[in-house]
Design a protein around this nucleic acid. Structure first.
Lengths: 349, 349
DNA sequence: TTGAAAGCGATACCAG
DNA sequence: CTGGTATCGCTTTCAA
């Protein structure tokens, strides 16, 4: 996203409050409204257990508004023993439109259920250390990346009160519910497709960038698995997301003698396809190319790019899963129908 | 990002702790170590004001580890009056690689300074309501989107203890430091470039998708401004990010009589360029096209796409700005050199 | 219907 | 050098 910093400036402080008064508390509201703190709490939380007279309610609301009262989450959390926070990791890599949509839906659904969804950067710390840092916030539920946080990290989170720990990734982790995100199936589908199209010397592109192993490793493994026991060969190719890297790979392409390539995703596929075409390698005649993620750009390329489309669990579904898990942590988790990876064949394969 | 949910499962609870003991507190650690809670606090926070004997330190650390003690952030926050959280909004739209890198750097730098950076979804609530929700967390600093949160929201945040409120966006907001992200300058540069290339009937693409106005409106306004008082005309074109929308626009292109287009960003430019080419409109002969954000894909297109590249403040710079603001909220903010938007001319214009 | 008061967990002051 | 203790803001039980 495009940002230009033009200027840092400061507008003069509003003249209304020359002395920065301490933050108003519910006691201040109570004093101003002429009631007790308990009453304030009842009114502002719409407590159904007690009935407060209408005039009192009004006085409390008026006082709260006048003071600009904002409740202190830490106080509530401390009293309740847990927060209403749901933590999820920020991805270390740029997210595609699919994942953005997923996050958006997930947040929306959970905030409607009155949770606070927060994305937590795992930067710096890693694995179980990160889990410990998250645990300090006493989140009610946590989504954790699956390779990255192990059983120990999961245990820390649960011990510190998280009622639902859901791992996202290819591996299940002891003690946590697992949302098995089977990138291996993407690799399997792509490789099987290339094989079905008659290709036998098949390459799999693995991004050279750090932090992508989480996705690329299972995709490669899946491809290997799909072709195991056939007469096809699998060649792993490292490719950085730069024109230079792609050009270098394209230059030695003829020597490699490959006739099909699964290019990790549509973006790497576009990069590679361009470099191959510039080097005089024809697609799909000389080499069949398939990407993944079904991005818009694949449809805009010529030849149109074949791709593997994957079904994401909808944000709403996952949200209600989390909600159920929070409400009854002991309940047996229901099984979900496996979502498949489907090949969208276009012109590049 | 591509995710496949294959299965939801639960692994059996570890048999070690049949009774899920309540979360250990510092009092438990103190009891086990045979010291007071105060001593525990001193040891675990490396308090420099007091000196604790080495054997005691060891006992405390051992006890903490044995219990799996994790400090309770709410307790600390309550006591301190504010958390060490820095809040920033999650963008409603998929972020490009530039912004991802920026967020990553920003988080990394601040977590090295011992802050906790958290991305907060503004989903559902909007504007000053969202500000109120954020204020409940008593963040020490907040980055807020500038159109979206007004002076009132900023005031709420400052009143509730935020020592630095930095707005991101084209407008300054009363009471907050402003990081003026001048998307208007992107529009200005693009329009000026097209004009310099001899184009006079210039179109500006505005995404039809909701939530992009924050970026698209200033880009359009900037284009208008740059061409104001010249003999060029500016035509606003709405375009959804679908092939159908692009094809429909391309079909009525000849009737529009336009000879230059600033296509919002490189992705919309790619979509439009493809549709135009498919409709027999030549680029750049019939119409010059320029995008923005300098994405990789622009270099891979044919003709290569001209673009506007923008300088992002580095994540580290912004992090240290925030840190300084937190440490001395009253200090006069230093001025920054304006970062420019620069045109990268390639073959499409 | 409202008020008084206990207590959640961590910290820092003040004694010893 | 270490321990007792008051305190932060909020919720909720119990009494009035």
């Amino acid at each position: 996203m495009p940002y230009v910093m033009v200027q840092i400036q400061n507008t003069p402080a509003p003249t209304k409050s020359p002395v920065p008064r301490p933050v108003p508390t519910s006691a201040d509201v109570a004093r101003l409204a002429g009631v007790s703190r308990a009453t304030v709490s009842y009114v502002l939380n719409n407590a159904s257990a007690v009935r407060i007279s209408e005039p009192t309610r009004r006085r409390v609301h008026a006082a709260a508004k006048e003071l600009g009262y904002v409740p202190h989450a830490a106080g509530r959390t401390l009293r309740a023993g847990h927060s209403r926070m749901v933590l999820m990791p920020t991805l270390p890599v740029p997210a595609g439109p699919l994942y953005s949509q997923f996050v958006h839906d997930f947040q929306g659904a959970l905030s409607r259920l009155d949770y606070t969804v927060v994305q937590y950067g795992a930067t710096g710390l890693r694995g179980d250390d990160a889990a410990r840092a998250w645990a300090e916030l006493r989140p009610v539920a946590v989504l954790v990346p699956s390779p990255g946080v192990g059983p120990e990290g999961v245990a820390v989170l649960k011990r510190s009160g998280a009622r639902a720990v859901v791992t996202l990734g290819p591996e299940a982790v002891e003690g946590a519910r697992a949302l098995l995100l089977d990138h291996a199936d993407v690799g399997r589908s792509a490789a099987a497709h290339l094989y079905a199209r008659g290709r036998r010397r098949i390459a799999v592109v693995v991004p050279a960038e750090r932090g992508m192993e989480m996705f690329s490793a299972p995709r490669l493994a899946g491809s290997r698995e799909a072709l195991h026991g056939t007469d096809a060969t699998v060649t792993e190719l490292s490719l950085a997301y730069t024109e230079e890297s792609a050009a270098a790979l394209a230059a030695r392409w003829p020597a490699l003698g490959l006739d099909g390539v699964f290019a990790y995703n549509d973006e790497y596929a576009m990069l590679l396809m361009r470099a191959l075409q510039d080097a005089g390698v024809r697609v799909p005649e000389d080499v069949a190319v398939i990407g993944a993620d079904d991005l818009m750009l694949g449809r805009l390329l010529r030849p149109r790019l074949s791709t593997v489309r994957i079904a994401l669990p909808s944000g709403r579904d996952l949200a209600s899963l989390v909600d159920r898990a929070v409400r009854s942590p002991a309940a047996a988790p229901e099984a979900h129908e496996p979502f498949g990876a489907t090949v969208v064949q276009r012109d590049s394969s």
